[in-house]
Simulated scan of single mutants.
Amino acid sequence: MKEKVVVITGALGVLCRVLAVGLAEKGYKIALLARKMDEAEELASKITASGGTAFAFKADVLKKTTLEEARLQINEKLGSCDILINGAGGNHPSGTTSNSYLSEEDLSNDNENLTTFFDLDTKGIQYVFDLNFLGTLLPTQIFAKDMIGKQGCSVLNISSMSSFSPLTKIPAYSGAKAAVSNFTQWLAVHFSKAGIRVNAIAPGFFLTNQNRNLLLTESGDLTQRGHDIINQTPMKRFGQPEDLLGITLFLCDDASSFVTGVIIPVDGGFNAFSGV
């Protein structure tokens, strides 16, 4: 593992930060890809101070030239990529409806803050699909080339449990993550003869900067949506970023050398629960 280079996109996200630190503790060399270099370098310094190896590289997952530049820098400083974690992703407010269900009264409501299905913005929806799907495809095009001909290489995508069953209010995000899961399976087959495994993890509800206001009130109590989620989660809690580390280590390790094309839920049983 000490010789393996892990490239992580979206490295400054709440979940990927923990993955970067955890992988570095196990001896992997970490390449942090992000747009905000100050924060990325701070994280790299933290990892290095703890005895790990990490460097920050500036890149935008939707701009191929920046990914190519980052690849050259990584190859020079750390060596070629062995494992790619496609962690960049997210939602956008203009691809989200205000209510879970459409009512006839919504169509005559003058509240400018109310967003129905008919108000969804095309640009916002396209942004969500670009960030999640193209933001997974483009880095894979750039970094998977360096994996061909080597042993123990893999791609790990970050999907979502909303890819199995779409969540209310977020049609763009649910659809985009379903595309990521489908692409994971397609790519696993496509790369199977080249010795590259491709898998995905599908996190359930984890508290992140993007969803905290949707799940918790300012006082820290559960919102109605937060209550609905916990009631649907057999383990009765939100996920902690550390909950993703074990499955990530497994899928990156040669212990999973015959595992490819799977999307593994990490959701406290949310996807398995029928509600009764």
Rank of each mutant, 00 (worst) to 15 (best):
G13I: 09
G149V: 01
I196L: 07
Y173K: 00
K63F: 13
N86G: 06
D82W: 04
V6G: 11
R35C: 04
L222W: 05
G13W: 09
I158T: 03
T9N: 09
C153M: 11
M37P: 04
S108F: 14
T217H: 09
R212N: 07
V21R: 14
G226S: 11
N111Q: 08
L114E: 02
V198R: 12
T96P: 03
L156F: 05
T97Q: 02
I83Y: 11
A202D: 02
I230A: 07
R237H: 03
N271P: 14
V7E: 05
F250N: 03
N99W: 13
A24F: 05
I30C: 07
I158M: 14
L138E: 13
T115C: 12
D146G: 11
K236V: 13
T168C: 15
E25G: 03
S45E: 11
T260D: 14
S163T: 11
N213S: 11
G95N: 06
A272P: 08
A176F: 11
G152M: 12
F205H: 09
C153R: 15
L216D: 07
N113F: 09
K177V: 01
K177I: 00
G89D: 00
A255C: 13
N111T: 04
T48G: 09
L249C: 10
V18D: 13
L102F: 08
I74Y: 07
E218C: 10
P203A: 04
I263S: 06
I85R: 01
S80C: 12
I8K: 00
R71Q: 08
G10T: 04
G124Y: 02
I47S: 05
A49H: 10
P171C: 12
L33Y: 04
L244E: 15
R225M: 14
A144N: 11
T66L: 02
A70W: 01
